[in-house]
Design a protein around this nucleic acid. Structure first.
Lengths: 167, 167
DNA sequence: TTAAACTTTCAGTAATTATTGAAAGTGAAA
DNA sequence: TTTCACTTTCAATAATTACTGAAAGTTTAA
């Protein structure tokens, strides 16, 4: 496989996987493109490479910045904005985990707690409360693990879990 | 809050969260409905409660069975199929993890490995290979952890991680 | 067998989500 | 202050995805 071919394949693979994760295709492709680029790219570069409109490129770059996984890079002597994605994959993983946790898991925990506050002690209601409690418990534990992972340094995941997995 | 109200809120909450996870709304709602139901439900029950068509109900129940989180339950003396969701949340979590791992993570690992096989040793190509290697490494580690979680018993997650989180 | 009770499929349609492109906005240089 | 180079917004439209409902298929009981 040739390098350029591999880059394109990577960008497309990422794009098609994105749907499984509730992320739009273009957003994933823009991120992949910036990740494999040696130097920062302008909106025009992104538009040309991915064959998308200015509005779409702008919107998705914006979303990626919002997720904290793409940065605006100033290039001296240039008026255009240039963008880049950090090449540190561990940092990327932590950042994505942090955002998903905040956007998706924490609201669930909040809702599940609210749902336990029902003023009814029939057997049926008790079953329901037990269910919410169990859901809450698993979710909270997962949330705690992710919290720990976010704060950990690069080797924590490897060392701790490699050990655990081998047990 | 009244019990019925709480049940409906739970079903709707689940439905609206589902989009973040690449799962369709109805599928999540059907699962939530079966989870909060005391006894197995028929396709007609699901149709009536969620106000959806027979085709839609059938399709989504089928998908849930395919995910291994809903079962067909035979009720003696009835010709209709009845469906139920297991109330053991830890099992549910493991089952979902198992399926997502198989459907989403494992194909990524495979692709990332393929992408490292480029016959080019320019600096640029080396950078690309390094990137794929790093992505592969984080993904493989996460995959290993999940593998362990799937095989673990109910208290493994809690005991192991509670310790770790408190560190 | 046949018929009734039920399940599945799928073409057409609806609903949702993403994209375009042109116009408005912004700010720096002249 | 005007113009130029760029960024942002957003209404219209396209593309995708989900849903309906009726017809075809299947199973069971008589």
């Amino acid at each position: 496989m040739k390098l350029e071919e591999a880059k394109i394949k990577y960008i497309n693979t990422w794009g098609s996987l994105s749907t499984h994760w509730g992320v739009n295709k273009t957003m994933a492709q823009v991120h992949a493109l910036l990740l494999v680029s040696e130097s920062p790219l302008s909106t025009d570069d992104i538009m040309d490479t991915l064959k998308i409109s200015r509005g779409n490129a702008n919107m998705n770059v914006r979303a990626l910045i919002d997720w904290g996984i793409v940065r605006k890079e100033l290039i001296s002597g240039e008026r255009k904005d240039y963008f880049t994605a950090d090449k540190d994959i561990w940092e990327l993983f932590k950042q994505i985990t942090k955002e998903r946790k905040r956007r998706e898991i924490e609201p669930v925990i909040k809702t599940l707690e609210e749902l336990q506050e029902i003023d009814d002690d029939s057997r049926e209601a008790e079953n329901f409360k037990k269910l919410m409690k169990d859901l809450s418990s698993v979710t909270t534990t997962v949330n705690g693990i992710l919290e720990k992972a976010i704060k950990a340094d690069e080797h924590w995941l490897f060392s701790n879990f490699t050990k655990m997995v081998k047990k």
